[in-house]
Design a protein around this nucleic acid. Structure first.
Lengths: 232, 232
DNA sequence: GCAAAAGTGTTGTCAATACACCCATGC
DNA sequence: GCATGGGTGTATTGACAACACTTTTGC
């Protein structure tokens, strides 16, 4: 096979930023890095791209390795390439972020990587530029979630509206009026009310809802405006 | 320097999608590829990343080489990495798009690359996955421009409101009511009316405006809603 | 005086916010 | 019966879209 002359190849890694929501707290999944340098420091889950793999494929593989999950929300965030970002060897990192149902995960948790969930406010120092990547992912999620129903990806099959609202409140770090929130959410038509209630948080209980997956897909690209504009 | 073992490095290229607006038509700048394979086919301007360069730096360099322009709007779009996307050698491409004032460019046009502007509707077949990249860039611009004042980057220092409106109409391929458009634009406070008129398009003439750069920066992150929501 | 583009106002509708009380239930 | 979180309704405001005519001026 012909080659481009005089070009210096570099390593290409794919790193995955994995968010989960346990019904109370938005969390980030990180691992203890298994290889030198900075072995045993906290790190995003990542890996080098395989010979016959495209970028999305590598991200899916890495996510599967760590969580056992297929078919989860995964989106390319950004490519990072500072020459010195990895002190060992020039490495470009293409970063993905993923939103998963933390309950699905915990059934298949894999201790091999010494993975741990951290509350977003308590994420430890990560290797290289990984903290910067997490920050960028949160910014992007805030951007996306204001217009598209991506946060549903974090919820279990059945969830309550207070859970959903609390998730939005955490992502935007702002209190949301529950009457207006419920009105918007129900107006979107994305939810299907169940007959059962979740009684774990109150005596009265909160109705469970399921996501209408068809409507979710159909409306994914439309702009929905879930977040109140600050009235200043 | 220590190295990661058993990892196969690959080439990393940066490609630039360059948009310009001549006051009438939104256009894309492409070049005739100078090297084999597919020499002399139309291609995005690109290059391999340098040893001491980060990705943004490489994009700026490539843009400067082709246009002679510094300090233009430049944003990372996406990384592409299909194993077979470049038939010669495995190459990951990190793609940027850029919005420039086509008039500034033409003063410094550089024939060395056999560059040519194409109307968006008439972009020829490009090499590899470059057409797909251009499509993705247009999608992203539509997304961004609905909320942020990025399209001003395409205009000369002085421009008229009909020019601006026509640009929006092209980007969204839809007619826009001029009364509502003017109201929104003036309400944004981004424009400073000049005393001169552009008489090239009508006997009456259209007032020139300048962009208020401070307000433009300040409001860049806020959501502005320039595009009418389809009333369906 | 007329052609050709620029510019200007009003109205109705809908969506968003602000805001406070009753409901259901387990103890 | 009371404490706890869940759920509900209304009034006001502001933003948006729809819509058609007058203005300017070079020829």
């Amino acid at each position: 096979m012909a080659k481009y002359l005089n070009q210096k190849p570099v390593l290409v890694a794919v790193d995955c930023i994995i968010f989960g929501y346990d019904g109370e707290q938005l969390k980030l999944l990180v691992i203890k890095r298994a290889i030198e340098p900075v072995k045993d420091k906290w790190s995003l889950m990542g890996g080098f791209i395989g010979d016959e793999e495209n970028l999305d494929g590598a991200a899916k593989r890495i996510l599967l390795e760590l969580t056992g999950l297929h078919d989860v929300y995964l989106e390319q965030l950004h490519a990072y390439g500072r020459p010195d970002r990895d002190p060992i060897e020039r490495t470009i990192s293409v970063v993905y972020f993923s939103l998963i149902d933390i309950n699905k995960y915990s059934k298949q948790i894999n201790d091999q990587f010494h993975a741990e969930w951290f509350k977003l406010a308590e994420v430890p120092e990560l290797i290289f530029d990984h903290n910067e990547m997490v920050q960028a992912a949160m910014d992007k999620i805030r951007y996306q979630a204001a217009l598209h129903p991506i946060l549903f990806e974090l919820l279990p099959k059945k969830f309550t509206i207070p859970q959903l609202q609390s998730l939005y409140e955490q992502v935007y770090d702002t209190p949301i009026d529950n009457r207006n929130f419920i009105r918007k959410i129900t107006a979107s038509g994305l939810l299907i009310k169940q007959t059962e209630k979740d009684k774990s948080n109150s005596r009265r209980g909160a109705f469970y809802f399921k996501l209408d997956k068809n409507k979710h897909k159909a409306q994914f690209q439309s702009f929905l405006n879930f977040i109140p504009k600050s009235t200043k």
